[in-house]
């Protein structure tokens, strides 16, 4: 693969990382800790929302994030022809 292509591939990878890690930070440190008191005023069934994010929601989002990353990267690898045969 040429130098230029590699740079482009890496840039796209870093962009995905930044977006996914922003969500990672937002659901856990944001909704689960910093904004929890505020979100607790909203109810999700029997759960106060901030409490739900801290003890349930953040973990579900973590799992989804990894599988989204797997999909994105598999597509990106194929697009730049660097996937494993």
């Amino acid at each position: 693969m040429s130098k230029k292509n590699l740079k482009e591939y890496w840039k796209r990878n870093l962009k995905y990382l930044l977006i996914l890690l922003f969500i990672w930070f937002f659901v856990s440190f944001g909704c689960g800790i910093l904004l929890a008191d505020y979100l607790n005023n909203i109810k999700l069934g029997g759960f106060p929302l901030g409490f739900w994010f801290a003890q349930q929601g953040a973990i579900y989002v973590f799992v989804i994030l990894i599988f989204v990353y797997v999909r994105l990267m598999n597509k990106l690898d194929a697009e730049f022809d660097v996937d494993e045969k």
């Binding site: 890690l21 990672w24 801290a54 953040a58 973990i59 994030l65 990353y69 797997v70």
Partner: peptide
């Protein structure tokens, strides 16, 4: 929740 998030969130870092 610090244990719940702390001991799972690290896997996102690991994977990415």
């Amino acid at each position: 929740a610090q244990y719940l998030m702390g001991w799972t969130g690290g896997y996102v870092l690991l994977a990415l």
